[in-house]
């Protein structure tokens, strides 16, 4: 399992992109569009990162938490599973799964610090109850493979392992968690897509290296296109739009 992605539940649970961008009927009733859905997940991914920075939690744990959160919303509605509670709870659960346990009271302390709104200042008991519901929603599939793992190896192998390339690709991989890529593609292909973008950006020719990898470059390029599309549209993900999406969620149908 840990060594073999192809026999893992992560692999078995990979989804087609069309399955991911389906708004739950309960959310649709409140007028949530696919775009709103995407925005809310993006916002909550950023929130998890911010929370983790305050508590000083490692990037891999953050990545696992974001993956849990995104997996939850392939099955559950935003209406029934309040994102502002789901997100920190996913971080809490990921800390346990990745063996970097953080106490619920510390998490609650930082939630209060980050969220001014009284309504979303959750208590320990809210986190613990949601933890159970998330475990159930995830069907107890907790092992997540990340693109980070193969990154150093690939960089070394392709001869691009200088500091600036490492920084750039690492940052690109971080940004892939603002999308649903981890739910739709094997992590090593995400890694390769990030290296591909970086190599084009830095004008390094590693075409032959890619050719020798015996991976389908069309898939790698498609993932790269998705990432570039995301950057392209990033300006449009404004606070106002996030607010508007959350306001829809707050209104009864």
């Amino acid at each position: 399992m840990a060594s073999n992605f192809w026999t893992s539940t992560h692999y078995k649970e990979l989804k087609d992109p069309e399955e991911i961008n389906v708004v739950h009927p309960l959310d649709a009733q409140r007028g949530i569009s696919v775009e709103d859905f995407r925005l809310i997940k993006l916002h909550m991914s950023n929130y998890i990162s911010k929370l983790a920075q305050h508590i000083k939690i490692r990037q891999r744990v953050v990545a696992t938490a974001v993956t849990y959160m995104r997996r939850v919303y392939t099955r559950k509605s935003l209406t029934e599973y309040e994102p502002r509670l789901v997100a920190p709870t996913c971080l809490y659960l990921a800390c346990k799964a990745e063996e970097s346990v953080v106490h619920a009271k510390i998490l609650v302390f930082y939630i209060r610090k980050l969220y001014a709104d009284e309504k979303f200042r959750y208590e320990i008991k809210d986190i613990l109850e949601m933890e159970m519901k998330i475990l159930e929603a995830l069907e107890f599939y907790l092992v997540v493979f990340h693109p980070y793992r193969s990154l150093p190896e690939y960089l070394q192998d392709s001869g691009l392992n200088d500091t600036s390339m490492t920084h750039l690709t690492w940052g690109l991989v971080n940004d892939t968690y603002r999308m649903d890529l981890i739910l739709t593609h094997p992590p090593y292909l995400i890694t390769l897509a990030c290296i591909y973008i970086a190599s084009v950006y830095k004008e390094k020719d590693i075409k032959t290296w890619f050719e020798e990898l015996s991976v389908d470059m069309n898939i790698v390029k498609n993932i790269a296109m998705e990432i570039l599309d995301f950057y392209e549209n990033h300006r449009m993900f404004t606070e106002e739009r996030v607010h508007a999406a959350f306001n829809k969620l707050a209104t009864s149908p």
Partner: peptide, 9 residues
């Protein structure tokens, strides 16, 4: 958590 996580795989 650890036990379930491993056993599920």
């Amino acid at each position: 958590i650890r036990e379930i996580m491993l056993l599920r795989e």
